[in-house]
């Protein structure tokens, strides 16, 4: 039996050298897929996610069409080669469907769907590599891709995860930390209003510990907001320069 891994050392360092409230290095890029209306790529530490957005466009399925607004479809997929152990692809994995639905509901609150009746907006999220935090990385990638596609939103959706271990809250858990039975909370925040639009908890967490974990996760979301916003500003400015009028 291996000794239980010390997630936070007595000196206050985590296995990858981070401090408890430190987010991993984030790298973003938009407009990475030429065929999509909007696309984005995010690396958060070693977690890599690709997002493609199509729409608003003519719906494929008649059944889901709404007469007064656009329907949002989210497909969340994890590549077979993405994690430490190869996962065989299960057709229509229920967990993946559930995550897709959760993300869809999150974005329905911010995307101005009433501007586009009878059309659909498709968000395709592909996890290429996962080292923990796949869901919140995917949400952030989706936000960037929607903005890249020029789809109006009332606010950003910024997400991050936090957990509680060794008597303290830690931010942005990696794979090792997530698999070490650390209760992990994934939070999606709308920065302008400060409202939480999504909350997911994987295991049990004592009610007393909930507040500090949510607070830390929200802080992480605000940090993500700064990172995402900076990226959008730079790419917008660059695009504005090349499209001569």
């Amino acid at each position: 039996m291996a000794a239980r891994l010390e997630i936070v050392s007595p000196e206050g360092l985590r296995v990858d050298g981070r401090r408890p409230a430190e987010v991993r290095r984030v790298l973003t890029r938009t407009g990475v897929l030429s065929q999509a209306d909007g696309s984005a790529y995010i690396e958060q530490g070693n977690t890599k996610c690709l997002a493609a957005v199509y729409g608003p466009r003519e719906p494929v399925k008649r059944a889901g069409v709404l007469h007064d607004r656009a329907t949002i479809n989210v497909e969340y997929n994890v590549s077979s080669f993405s994690s430490g152990e190869r996962r065989a692809k299960l057709r229509r994995d229920r967990k993946l469907l559930e995550i897709g639905l959760m993300i869809k509901q999150t974005f329905e609150t911010v995307v101005a769907t009433t501007s586009f009746p009878r059309s659909e907006i498709d968000i395709y999220l592909q996890i290429l590599q996962t080292d923990g935090g796949a869901v919140h990385t995917a949400i952030n990638a989706a936000t960037l891709a929607l903005i890249d596609a020029g789809i109006p939103m009332t606010d950003y959706v910024c997400a991050c995860s936090a957990g509680f271990v060794n008597d303290q809250a830690i931010l942005d858990l990696n794979f090792l930390e997530e698999s070490a039975d650390v209760p992990t909370l994934t939070v999606a925040l709308l920065p302008k209003s400060g409202k939480i639009s999504m909350l997911g908890l994987e295991s049990r967490l004592h009610i007393d510990k909930l507040e500090p974990v949510i607070a830390l996760a929200s802080d992480g979301c605000m940090q993500m907001k700064d990172t995402l916003d900076e990226a959008i500003r730079i790419s917008t400015r660059n695009l504005a320069k090349t499209v001569l009028h």
Binding site: I147, M153, Y156, L190, I232, R233, T236
Partner: peptide, 10 residues
Amino acid sequence: SLDIHVVTPG
């Protein structure tokens, strides 16, 4: 291009 006012959602 020198004086464009860039804004982002929200």
